[in-house]
């Protein structure tokens, strides 16, 4: 199922967008991700991941209000699309399928 293909980082970003709901824009996604992953996320990597997923149709975006915080630049908010939801569900299914099939002995050792 190639059309659902998600990289690991993309998956994380997509899930974070879902978590943040209405508040998902560049900096907030970055901070949330850094909190959870416990590592630095570069703006460049994040932006290109967001744009890439928007091109693929997993994300939708719109321009928000302008704030002085951002030096007069508007925020761009992101929201997951139905297609995006399908993609993360699909990924989860594959993962849980794999988890299910791991023999108990492996996990105990």
């Amino acid at each position: 199922m190639k059309r659902y293909q998600l990289g690991e980082f993309e998956e994380m970003v997509l899930l974070t967008v879902c978590v943040l709901q209405e508040e998902a824009y560049g900096v907030s996604i970055k901070e949330e991700l850094e909190d959870r992953l416990n590592r630095n996320v570069s703006v460049g990597a994040l932006q290109s991941a967001l744009r890439r997923m928007e091109d693929k149709g997993f994300l939708d975006s719109w321009e928000g209000e302008t704030t002085s915080q951002r030096g007069g630049r508007p925020r761009r908010y992101f929201k997951i699309t139905l297609f995006g939801v399908k993609a993360i569900e699909y990924t989860r299914e594959i993962r849980s399928g794999l988890w299910r099939d791991i023999p108990k002995a492996v996990l105990q050792s």
Partner: peptide, 16 residues
């Protein structure tokens, strides 16, 4: 295409 967004993000991070 990216400029506005990126510049905004970077400025916001800079301020914080």
């Amino acid at each position: 295409v990216f400029l506005e967004e990126v510049e905004g993000d970077l400025t916001e991070i800079f301020r914080s």
